[in-house]
């Protein structure tokens, strides 16, 4: 593990019966980088994210975050982990601010700090004006933004974002992109999956190409283009699908 490596994936495998979903993955993610996972549907991205977020256990291998094992020391890791699930995970019957209040409490925040953090999170996702509205009155894009805000409340060092922009309008997508860039500047490490390749190209410092449970390549956009002799990441992905 190098000096700047924050996450180390070591021989990670996941099997459901005879089906191998992840096959001995090994790589590292550096501090303050945006690391993208790109691959076709069923490649194993969400399973990897689930293990990293301590939601499911690997069949074999481990992930170390700051030297702590996700399988053995998940309680310590959780405090420093922000998770943006693929699905909207909010109470629709509560207002935006009530949702944030609840999750801030869950992360042990109270009093003035709680209020301050909620305002910060609302400002990052640009939802200050609609904070008091019920979530079920939000547009899809606003819900996605609030979904992200929840993960920012406790100022985690690591943010796991599983397709945070899926089904979002252009304006909300731009806001989310801006938010992710701002978070990188703050020194957050972001693990990011998306189906939008342009997002990956614009945002990610490095991209891991994953297919059928295996990592095919990891590198910057330029490195991947050189390795595969293609001008666009999209073309590389299409090559995988053809194989």
């Amino acid at each position: 593990m190098g000096m700047q490596d924050l996450i180390e994936v070591k021989g990670l495998s996941k099997k459901y019966g005879k089906l191998t979903v992840l096959d001995r993955l090994s790589f590292t993610i550096q501090k303050a980088e945006i690391f993208g996972l790109l691959g076709p549907n069923g490649a194993g991205k969400s399973t990897f994210i689930s293990i990293l977020a301590t939601l499911c256990r690997p069949t074999d291998g481990d992930i170390l975050i700051n030297g702590l094992s996700v399988t053995k020391q998940s309680d310590k890791i959780k405090k420093n982990l922000g998770f943006v699930p693929q699905e909207i995970a909010l109470y629709p019957m509560l207002s935006g601010i009530d949702n944030l209040n609840f999750w801030a409490g869950i992360y042990g925040l109270s009093g003035g700090i709680k209020k301050e953090r909620i305002q910060q999170a609302l400002s990052v996702v640009r939802l200050e004006d609609r904070a008091k509205d019920r979530v079920d009155n939000y547009s899809g894009g606003m819900k996605r933004r609030l979904n992200i805000a929840v993960a920012l409340l406790h100022h985690p060092d690591i943010l796991i974002m599983d397709e945070p922009t899926v089904g979002v309008d252009i304006q909300s997508r731009k806001y989310i992109m801006d938010a992710i860039k701002a978070l990188k500047k703050e020194g957050k490490t972001i693990i990011f999956t998306s189906h939008y390749i342009d997002e990956m190209e614009n945002l990610c410092d490095r991209i891991a190409l994953i297919d059928k449970g295996s990592i095919k390549s990891i590198g910057t956009v330029g490195e991947l283009q050189r390795i595969y002799g293609r001008e666009k990441i999209e073309e590389i992905l299409l090559d995988f699908l053809r194989d």
Binding site: T54, L55, K78, F83, P85, I88, A89, L90, Y91, W103
Partner: peptide, 13 residues
């Protein structure tokens, strides 16, 4: 059903 359980499982609670 609202996927809040997954989020709670990732939290320290």
């Amino acid at each position: 059903s609202l996927h809040l359980t997954d989020r709670l499982r990732v939290s320290p609670i």
